[in-house]
Simulated assay, not measured.
Amino acid sequence: MKKEASIVIADDHPMLLKGLYDELTSNGYNIIGQADNGMRALELILTLKPKLALLDIEMPLLNAFEVFKMAREKRTETKFILLSYHKEKEYILQARALNIGAYLLKEDSFFTIEKCIESVLNNEEFFSPYFQDSALSNTKDELKQLSHLTASEVSILKRIALNQSSKAIADDIGVSIRTIDKHRANIINKLGLSKSTNTLTSWALLNKDIIGEL
């Protein structure tokens, strides 16, 4: 049965963690570990090897994205569900950039949580009903656009996301400013951004977490 799948849960808010634990266990789910910070969550995932981990995104020591990346580096097969209050598109983009296909809001019903768990265990994506299909489709399109960038363009975009100037980037990689400006123009075209001054820099700073995963 699906409810026999081992689960680790993590949230740095004691009441929310207790509420999640009580709700899951009273409905027959097998909770094998609880954590109130990201480092402890990672330790539990690596030692207990649960089938599923439900993690609050923002936790002390390590956030859920960092836990996921470190767990994957250790080749864990645990499946992840993110829990958050955040409704901003950037969080969905970052989850998708890491190939995390499950994202719930803390306001979602327990019925929704159950549907999400079932979907993830069946290797299917599941996002909170709050997010419209059109919005989810748009995030896929944005990631597809990023995939069209060359290695050089990705390298430059990462530096732009660190708020480096064209001159600093040119000096850093040993090319002319004109070459950097040409790359910037190509990136703007590929991402479908407006050609206004500083548009690319503003976009890169806003999406620096996603860019960092490229």
Score class of each variant (00 low, 15 high):
residue 81 I to F: 07
residue 144 K to S: 11
residue 9 I to N: 08
residue 153 E to P: 10
residue 137 S to L: 13
residue 121 L to A: 08
residue 135 A to R: 10
residue 157 L to K: 02
residue 198 N to E: 14
residue 166 S to F: 09
residue 188 I to W: 06
residue 10 A to D: 04
residue 107 E to I: 14
residue 141 D to K: 15
residue 214 L to Y: 01
residue 6 S to K: 15
residue 60 P to Q: 12
residue 72 R to D: 03
residue 76 T to K: 06
residue 37 N to T: 03
residue 112 T to R: 01
residue 176 S to D: 09
residue 103 Y to A: 07
residue 44 L to D: 08
residue 114 E to L: 01
residue 150 T to P: 03
residue 212 G to W: 01
residue 172 D to M: 07
residue 45 I to P: 07
residue 114 E to M: 04
residue 58 E to G: 00
residue 178 R to T: 10
residue 6 S to T: 11
residue 168 A to M: 07
residue 178 R to P: 00
residue 211 I to E: 02
residue 78 T to P: 08
residue 28 G to Q: 04
residue 33 G to W: 03
residue 78 T to G: 09
residue 153 E to D: 10
residue 210 I to K: 01
residue 106 K to D: 03
residue 3 K to V: 07
residue 182 K to N: 13
residue 32 I to E: 12
residue 181 D to V: 00
residue 28 G to D: 10
residue 24 L to N: 05
residue 59 M to R: 11
residue 86 H to Q: 11
residue 100 I to Y: 09
residue 76 T to V: 15
residue 157 L to I: 03
residue 155 S to L: 11
residue 74 K to S: 14
residue 75 R to S: 14
residue 26 S to I: 01
residue 69 K to V: 02
residue 116 C to V: 07
residue 157 L to W: 06
residue 190 K to L: 14
residue 151 A to H: 11
residue 170 A to F: 09
residue 11 D to E: 10
residue 157 L to V: 02
residue 195 K to I: 02
residue 32 I to H: 09
residue 67 V to N: 11
residue 5 A to L: 04
residue 132 Q to H: 13
residue 162 L to S: 09
residue 153 E to F: 08
residue 125 E to Q: 13
residue 127 F to G: 03
residue 213 E to C: 05
residue 96 R to I: 00
residue 164 Q to C: 02
residue 2 K to W: 08
residue 148 H to L: 14
residue 86 H to M: 13
residue 57 I to W: 10
residue 44 L to F: 13
residue 192 G to Y: 04
residue 105 L to A: 01
residue 27 N to Q: 14
residue 50 P to K: 10
residue 186 N to C: 03
residue 28 G to P: 09
residue 179 T to R: 11
residue 151 A to P: 00
residue 91 Y to G: 00
residue 131 F to D: 03
residue 108 D to R: 07
residue 118 E to P: 00
residue 168 A to I: 05
residue 33 G to E: 08
residue 170 A to K: 11
residue 139 T to I: 07
residue 93 L to T: 04
residue 202 S to H: 12
residue 76 T to E: 15
residue 160 I to R: 06
residue 114 E to S: 11
residue 145 Q to T: 04
residue 136 L to S: 09
residue 105 L to H: 00
residue 87 K to H: 02
residue 168 A to T: 12
residue 137 S to I: 00
residue 192 G to N: 07
residue 193 L to W: 03
residue 123 N to Y: 10
residue 73 E to P: 00
residue 29 Y to L: 05
residue 211 I to K: 01
residue 160 I to Q: 07
residue 9 I to G: 06
residue 18 K to I: 04
residue 25 T to A: 08
residue 91 Y to K: 13
residue 160 I to C: 09
residue 20 L to V: 02
residue 78 T to Y: 10
residue 214 L to H: 01
residue 95 A to R: 05
residue 163 N to V: 01
residue 85 Y to D: 09
